[in-house]
Computed example of a mutant assay.
Amino acid sequence: MLMTHAQPGSDGCVVPPEVITALKDLYIVSSALAQRGAYAQDIRDAQWRTMAQRAQEAKTALDQHGESLETRAIVLLRQMTNVCQGLVNRHAARQEIPFAVWREVGRLGHDAYEWVNLTAPRRRGTDA
């Protein structure tokens, strides 16, 4: 059976492609910002806007699928969305972002990266 709309996750549950895409997009952006933030480097406004956009896209994917599924991908996406939205809100309020928060964003990004890579070999054939 060829799966074109959803992929099984490492926990055996089927994960909708919107969740996989949102998880991948959010971890890429958040990891880049976490690296800059952890080293107290400037983060451009465009990067913050991209993070806000990816967090909104993740929220949309969660709204569509988060209630019906409770997979590792959904849990990771929910955690990342909450933390990233918190970062965006802190930035908008011009609040300092502690190193521990950046470290948590980096940890979640690492977890998401590992999860996506566990499912990626099964997806490569459908991405062409």
Rank of each mutant, 00 (worst) to 15 (best):
E114P: 00
P121Y: 04
R124G: 06
E104Q: 15
Q7V: 06
V116G: 00
C84V: 04
Q53I: 00
W115T: 04
L87D: 09
E57A: 14
A120S: 08
Q56M: 05
S68Y: 07
E18T: 11
I43Q: 12
A58G: 09
L23V: 05
V75A: 08
Q47Y: 03
T119N: 06
L87K: 07
L76K: 09
K59I: 01
R54V: 00
C13S: 08
E114L: 02
R54H: 02
C13Y: 08
I97A: 04
V14W: 07
E70D: 13
Q35L: 01
L62Y: 09
R72M: 04
T4A: 03
M1I: 00
Q7K: 12
Q64A: 13
L2N: 12
N89V: 11
E67D: 12
I28N: 10
Q47V: 01
D127P: 00
E104D: 09
A61C: 06
W115E: 13
N117M: 14
A22N: 06
Q56R: 13
Q47K: 13
T4G: 10
V15P: 07
G106F: 01
R78H: 10
R54A: 05
R123H: 02
D11Q: 06
Q7I: 06
L2E: 13
A128Y: 09
T126K: 15
R107G: 05
G37L: 02
V88T: 12
G106P: 00
L23G: 03
Q7E: 01
D127E: 15
V105Y: 00
H91E: 13
T4N: 07
C13N: 08
V83M: 11
